[in-house]
Design a protein around this nucleic acid. Structure first.
Lengths: 327, 327
DNA sequence: CGCTCAGATGGAACCGTTTACGGCGCTACA
DNA sequence: TGTAGCGCCGTAAACGGTTCCATCTGAGCG
């Protein structure tokens, strides 16, 4: 139904080859005929068929994004960054959500990979060799995950955690608890390493509460535990968990930050809207997404280039859930 | 580089036609050869190339989704619902984010529409004839938008608003303010109609505060205005705006719900984590997404079928930001 | 004036599938 | 025993572009 290059060629009185050259602009066409072709093309509403083009050139003009959970603001923002960067480059975007289940990833990749020129993959848990096997051949940059030998963009969350701990220390806190996220999570490791590094440096023991779901419900569990330890400050895996913990602590008659200081991680949009607004570690989620596209661009241009690992800085932002201990 | 049907055909000692038949399972192949073909295919890692298949059949096995803002939990959840439903049907998903700018929509649609068999389009503002012109030929179902003659799935937000108003009335509120969202927004109209309908029924005048950005910052503006009116209750365009309004009101020394009851709309995940948790109108966002895919499936199966408009119910959920007026 | 060369253009092969069409072998029936 | 019919399969023509190669047309130069 839509116009083909043949239609345009006939209308403009040229061959399909010339039409193709006018559009792909890599062959030589005279300025006059190019204008004529373009005029006829817009008149007929012609646009080169991506499938046909992909078949012969091998390039689809699309990239793929695989995330564990689109509804999680952390990844939603990343997706938004990816989307905008892709749009600026006139690339289409395939998205696949794996529902936090690693086992769905291979299937998702396989479905996508023949239709894209490159892949951005946020896989918090899958093992490196699994990834390797699955992507085979498709240029891939990892998002919020670093594996030696892979292209990746991630955030220096370990440093953010260290900033958090040093800040609490300087406020006078000495009993500080940490509530971890899902086991085996890559960024969970990062957090822990940053925290332990800083605590060794300060000669401080951190109270490790264990591993919790990174949700508000997980935070409720955390609150009950942290209150039992007598800690004056809590560092939470992410904002959502912190929100749950705070609401539970308040429900149990504690005040935040007077009785318990709380530092969260991610700085999602809602972190600043809560009462009190969350002190949290800001990670450049949006920028991570667009940066991943930039790297993917480089990688697709030269698949043999040596892998780059971009690490974005994080920043502790002080709002109202931290204060000096009052105990 | 990846194996083609020719490779498989050679390996299995058959023709490419037979390989094709074995995969598309609409031609006649004997059980024995089908098994042999499949065995060779998996051995070689063969999978029919979607682009080549699309070129000849016209079907890509993909659907497209266009949303104004992926980072907005309202649409993120919808996208998630769409994604899951698409995955269950073994369809790929193209996503385009238009950054809330109607003028980017035509471009987004054009980019997408040749690569998909159908489109799900959440366009809060664009005029109906613009949509018609742009999609031409691509089966489309509208999401959270109703236009006569189009397939669509939306939520009965007007009814939710009526529920909200009746609830406030029954609590004893008589001075009730409404803070609207973006002008020209379709779901904004829906809200207003629902509200006005119920207010006429209750013989109550609503204090209309005007039109605000549906963000926390917008909510701050709202708070200052509503405090000036002396209203005892506020109905806000969405949760985010309500959050902003509440935090501003609290900052200015008012208590919620004692001094001001607040009802929001959407029931995003964070609505239940705030302090106090938000009374809000729950709209089935996820379900709307998956329902849209189901409708699109029907539409793609029979493009001539008469349009269906699915309207999902909404439900007021009472949490802690509403109470009897204490003034 | 003839030759060379560069730039513009057309012809045709090709990308990897699907599918209409026809051939082949076999069974069943007259 | 001849043949109609059927199940299975191969051949080849599409689908809509891109690109190699050949051809043509002038311009420039000796």
């Amino acid at each position: 139904m839509p116009a083909t290059s043949r239609d345009v060629a006939r209308a403009a009185g040229v061959s399909v080859a010339t039409v193709s050259r006018a559009f792909s602009s890599n062959g030589a066409v005279s300025e006059a005929t190019k204008r004529r072709v373009m005029a006829e093309a817009t008149r007929l509403g012609y646009y080169p068929d991506p499938a046909a083009r992909r078949l012969i050139t091998g390039r689809s003009g699309n990239i793929g994004l695989i995330v564990p959970d689109l509804a999680n603001p952390f990844f939603a923002d990343a997706a938004k960054g990816v989307e905008r960067a892709a749009r600026q480059r006139h690339m289409g975007l395939f998205i696949s959500d794996t529902d936090e289940q690693d086992r769905l990833e291979p299937e998702a990749v396989r479905r996508i990979c023949r239709q894209v020129d490159g892949l951005i993959w946020a896989s918090p848990r899958s093992a490196g060799d699994v990834l390797k096997e699955v992507t085979d051949g498709v240029p891939t940059v990892l998002l919020h995950r670093r594996i030696p030998g892979w292209w990746s963009v991630s955030a220096d969350i370990g440093d953010g955690m260290a900033q958090a701990l040093r800040n609490l220390y300087s406020l006078g806190h000495r009993r500080i608890a940490y509530a971890g996220g899902p086991e085996r999570s890559y960024s969970g490791q990062l957090r822990l390493e940053g925290l332990l590094g800083a605590s060794a440096e300060l000669d401080l023991d951190i109270i490790r509460l264990g591993s919790f779901a990174p949700t508000a419900d997980g935070g409720i569990l955390v609150a009950d535990l942290v209150l039992a330890t007598g800690a004056t400050a809590l560092v939470a895996y992410n904002d959502t968990m912190a929100l749950g913990a705070i609401s539970r602590a308040v429900e149990r008659g504690r005040r935040v930050p007077e009785d318990l200081s709380v530092i969260a991680c991610d700085d999602i949009a809602y972190a600043r809207m809560t009462i009190p607004p969350l002190t949290t570690i800001q990670v450049p989620r949006h920028e991570a997404g667009s940066e991943a596209v930039a790297l993917l661009d480089e990688l697709m241009a030269d698949p043999q280039a040596t892998p780059k690992e971009k690490i974005l800085p994080t920043q502790l932002v002080i709002r109202r859930t931290t204060d000096v201990p009052r105990v």
